[in-house]
Every structure is written in C-alpha cells, then in structure tokens.
Design a protein around this nucleic acid. Sequence first.
DNA 1: TTTTCAATGTAACTTTTGTTACCCATTTCT
DNA 2: AGAAATGGGTAACAAAAGTTACATTGAAAA
Lengths: 210, 210
Amino acid sequence: MHNLTAYNLNFEPALLKEIEEVGELKYFKDADIIMDYGRYIKIMPIVTKGTIKILKMDENGRELLLYYLSSNDTCSMAYSCCVEAKKSEIRAVAEGDVELIAIPNTKLDEWQSKYPSWRNYITHSFNERFLELLKSIESVAFHKLDDRLISYLKDKQRLLGSNVIKVSHYQIADEMATSRVVISRLLKQLENDGKILLYRNEIKLLNSFS
Amino acid sequence: MHNLTAYNLNFEPALLKEIEEVGELKYFKDADIIMDYGRYIKIMPIVTKGTIKILKMDENGRELLLYYLSSNDTCSMAYSCCVEAKKSEIRAVAEGDVELIAIPNTKLDEWQSKYPSWRNYITHSFNERFLELLKSIESVAFHKLDDRLISYLKDKQRLLGSNVIKVSHYQIADEMATSRVVISRLLKQLENDGKILLYRNEIKLLNSFS
DNA sequence: TTTTCAATGTAACTTTTGTTACCCATTTCT
DNA sequence: AGAAATGGGTAACAAAAGTTACATTGAAAA
C-alpha cells in the first residue's frame, strides 16, 4: 500500500511489512510547517510524494534554504533527534502537496539491528544530507551572491522540471538570507544579460541561462 | 590497552575486546594530513589523543575550517565513506600530536547489528557533526567577519585551554577563507578596543575579550 | 470602478569585504 | 654578517552587499 518498493529502496519484505503496520501516512499542503525549531520530534518521515525544503534560521529571524527532500528521502536531523530525544535545529516546510510515511521513533533502533537494508538506508541518508550541507557551506562561503542566485534558480528549475519559476523576489531573498532590493538588482542584471525574463511572481529562464 | 572506557564511551566489554583485536593505533604529528579530498577511505578513526581540524576546500584552493575533532570523536564523513566506498569531500589535518584508533571498514556494519552501544555511538557522532556543520553555516551565512573572528578565537581558546593563541594572521585568514590583510585589520581593531594583544605569531586574549 | 495592497524598479548612499602595493621588523638560511 | 623569507602594519582604492527611500505597476478587494 505504501509502495516503497516502487522507489528503489530495496527494503526486505519483512521490513516493508513492518513499515506497512506501523508507518502512518501523513499529508501536508503548500507552506505547511512539518518540523520546526526547538520542537521535539517523535517520528521519522520518509517522503513519498512532493518536496520539502529544509531551512536554518538565525537569531534575528533571517532564514537560509539548506536543501530539498523529495521522494524516498528522509530527514537525518529527524532521525537523530528521534533516537536521542533532542530538539530540532531546522525547519521543514512543504513545497506544494506532500505525502510522507511517519515511522514511530520506537522502531528506529530496533530495525537497525534487524535489517541490513535499513542500516544502509540510514547511513546513505546521513551521507547525502551531510554532502548537501557541505554544498550549502561551499555556496555561502565561497561564492558571491550572483553565482548563488544562479544556483538557486537552477535548483528550482530542476526541482520543478520547468523553465518558468513562480516565485517573488521576496521569497528568494528570504531563502538566501539577503534583502529583496539586492535580489531585484541581481535579477535585473540577469535580465539585461538576456538570461531570464521577469514578470510579476514569475521568472522565465531562457535557453541562454544554463 | 586502547582504554576507551576511560573516555565515557560505554562500549560493551565484547565490543571493547573486538576493538582491541582489530583496531590499529596510529600516530600523527602537527600538520599531517590524515584524510584528504578525493581520497578513498578504508578505515574509520576514533580519536584518542589530540585534535584534528576538518576543512572544506573550494575549486580555487581557498579553505574553510568546519570544526574540530578531539578525544572520543569520530569523523562521520569517514564512516559513510567507508560503508559506501566513496571519496572524501573534506580534509583532516592534525593540530599537534594526534593518536587515533583505526577501525577497518569491514567491521562497521557488522558491529551495527551486534552492539547497541556502537549504534548509539555512530548515531550520536552523526548528529554532533551535523550540528557542527549547521553552526558553521550559521556563522558564514549570518555573521559578519568581525563576529566570526571572535568566535574563531574563542574556539581556539577553549581548545587550547589558554588565553595565548599561537597562530599567524595568514593561518587565520586561510581557515576563515579570507585574506591576510582583512584579518590583520580586524585584529588591530580588536587590539584598539582593548580586547587582545598582538605579537608575532601570537595573540593574547585579555579578560575583557570574552 | 475605485481603492488598497503587494510586487517590483531604481537611485543614492553606507558598510563591509577584497585587492594591491609597499613599508618595516623579525627570524632563518647561507 | 649579509641575504632571503616570513609576519605584520597600513594606505588607498575597488567591488560587493546592505540600507533607505520613494515611484510605479499590476492584482485583488471593496
């Protein structure tokens, strides 16, 4: 029913059966906050449909988009928070409709001892998230805003599978932890360079963009 | 002999025995590169003495200090690289003399199924490293250089257990991915504010610093 | 339709950071 | 000792990013 095999996770039948039994399907809609700063987490999510964005916030309320989770992904933060009963340091927000399987924290360690495929999955997830954080650090530490903006737009493009990105300058500024004026300025520059077209709440990436 | 119990790791006796058997003690001296970009990793280190710094490098050769590993810590990157046979994305460098136990990659998964304390240790390590990366991102994304420099100095202070930090402006600039002139300028400002004293290859943090 | 509001454009200015260039002092090498 | 290398101070300038302020435009609500 949850049909995780379809997504190439290669879980053992016995594990799939257990997931069927204890995993609870949950649904979220655009902009729903799935996980938040300082909140305790009692379930580990496995995303089955849609996209979740993971954000880090500073004391002054500015945010930074770290990475996206999509089908088959899980949140490593959630895993260790569950197992160690710690508070979340990040915020997870639904981008569009999201479906996920919620695994109760009581099962996580148990499955680690029983199922090699579960161990693989957890290790693999941690590694992927780790690499994404490294990419994120690289972006912020080594690249200027114009480059980062281009990366941001490319990520959106890949994620949406479309050259038309429906987003306001405010949203971009938020997710990149800068101000709207700066983003507008850089976007206008990209438009002047013939790489994008700007409309209200919409950016169109031209062929010359990539 | 390796005496890991002394460090509060709470491994089961049977696991300690296995570590005694297969773990190999390795020694490094200041500035030795323990792990490097693009290199395959076949062992997982558990630090028993000294400090290791973990760095990320960009295409142009600039580096950024991510965090330190000290006694009882392990490198999560190493763990997943071992298990998944992937190349390292980071560089690990000894700060002073370092002793570590090298665990062969063949044991990592096996112990996960056999020893709850090993699972705890791995999960805990991943979480700690994850949180350090988040701190690192927060620093670079949300804070200005002067704040970051103060954090840098505080970290060194804590690590060395001393108010006297033996380091050149060049080194600081390297680890913070900026230029020497900028660091000298900011340090001089801190000195003028009466927070530090500057000498050749040495910075003394005054009481008013913290 | 008129009003209201959110989204964007843009100028002018400040602050922060990076760069270049050249200085002097100390240490190390020959 | 003299030469060379390293570490640090500082000025002057350039580039990048942040800030403030205000105008314009399009969309939605009254």
